[in-house]
Design a protein around this nucleic acid. Structure first.
Lengths: 238, 238
DNA sequence: GGGGAAGTTTGTGCTAGAACAACCTATTCG
DNA sequence: CGAATAGGTTGTTCTAGCACAAACTTCCCC
């Protein structure tokens, strides 16, 4: 895909915030967008930076990170293709509340923040859909708080893996393989524990045949057993 | 104040989401509002209930609570007078994500959720202001996650008390007294610990002259020392 | 192809803070 | 007023999970 040619409408026409729009609107939106590639490890935007752009991840995986004064890192969430990011502007912020780092090679579109207002006013359904996204992220955050405050490390790690397996995995003959590189350290930063504890848990689960993991790789082989560990009803799907 | 007489415009004219509005608009908004009193302990709305109304707290204090399947409670936040609550509709939710309970006697106004859309469209500035509120709550939630994931109990409790002292206290000759009843149990539910640990911390701090606490009562006598414990710069005000 | 570098595993303390228990004190209300 | 109840304190025990160390494995790239 060359950034010289104009972008294909099918790129975004199926993505929630744009789904309800007419072809002409999509055309307009794409013409205003700048595509950009990021390679693994590159920062897409940084915490505290002025929020001058908002982004749509077209391909790849992004980690959203916050860092404390004392240097500890926490992974707030993972963004998968089709999701908007850096939508601080939507909620009246002028700086990004967290940093976004490309996990693998990523393709994103971005727009200047000044266009946010236009999008909301001009394109029907865009506002509703994106505010729904904001709502979902609040819920996620609150669930995370509940987990951190009430659950044991084992449950939290189980839940984190389940979420990733559901959100972003490919089916292999072994099970559901999380489809981006993920280290013990990463998992510990998602769950507020240490890489050592995660390693021990994964080793134990491997012996019980629940997961199958390797360097930067986790395959969930027994979803239901993992759900039991997460203290979720193993019968409930999704 | 009688609910039979029409509501005084001054009630809400200074509150952020309404501040920029004309008198006529305020009049309209008030005429559409229903006032209601809640006595200490009463639930204003419950988690999972359909979000049929949104509220403005005019007087009193409200606790926002989430409960886990296993019965643990977590206090998500405290609402003080002048704040909106139950604004699930703003973010495309159809049910309340948490329960709201009156801590002391409260006076609230409420409107049917169906009016939300009207408010946003009709009253300029209402949308911007409320989305800013939503944004602040996301930040709060994310900060809470960061704290739970990286800090010791002592720091978390110190921060929780600091926040309350700043948000909702009266100045007495002893120091800043949190102006609503607050138990050790409550504090533990805000910080993801146990009432025993909170009790020990408060006892220790009392000996050091940092706080002065009693039954359902906490007075912060030495803000700066508490800030040091919270690992925040004691020089930074607000 | 060999030497880092990055990621993982596992062992051995050790301690923050949870759990439980027992008792104490302030409030409330019949 | 006096019993019941809600809230608070403090002692003791115990363990989940952190910290640190050391060795191992996989990958990458010069």
């Amino acid at each position: 895909m060359s950034s010289l040619r104009s972008l294909d409408e099918n790129l975004i026409s199926h993505i929630p915030p744009f789904r309800k729009l007419e072809r002409v609107d999509i055309r307009e939106i794409l013409d205003a967008a700048t595509p950009k590639r990021f390679s693994a490890g590159q920062a897409i935007f940084e915490e505290h930076e002025p929020a001058e752009r908002f982004f749509l991840l077209l391909d790849g995986h992004v980690r959203v990170i916050r860092t404390t004064a004392s240097g500890d890192q926490v992974i707030a969430r993972h963004i998968v293709s089709g999701e908007l990011m850096g939508i601080a502007s939507a909620i009246g912020r002028t700086t990004y509340p967290a940093s976004a780092v490309a996990i693998d090679d990523c393709l994103v579109l971005f727009w200047p923040t000044s266009l946010w207002k236009t999008f909301v006013e001009k394109y029907d359904g865009f506002a509703t859909e994106t505010y729904k996204t904001v709502g979902e992220r609040i819920s996620e955050a609150n669930n995370h708080i509940l987990e951190l405050a009430t659950q044991q490390v084992e449950q939290r790690v189980a839940r984190a893996l389940l979420r990733l397996a559901i959100q972003s995995s490919r089916i292999t003959d072994e099970g559901m393989e999380i489809d981006f590189p993920l280290t013990r350290q990463n998992i510990s930063e998602m769950t507020g524990t240490t890489l050592y504890t995660v390693s021990r848990l994964l080793s134990a689960w491997e012996k019980q045949g629940i997961v199958n993991s390797g360097r930067k790789k986790v395959i969930v082989t027994e979803m239901n057993k993992l759900k039991t560990l997460a203290d979720l009803d193993p019968m409930a799907d999704s």
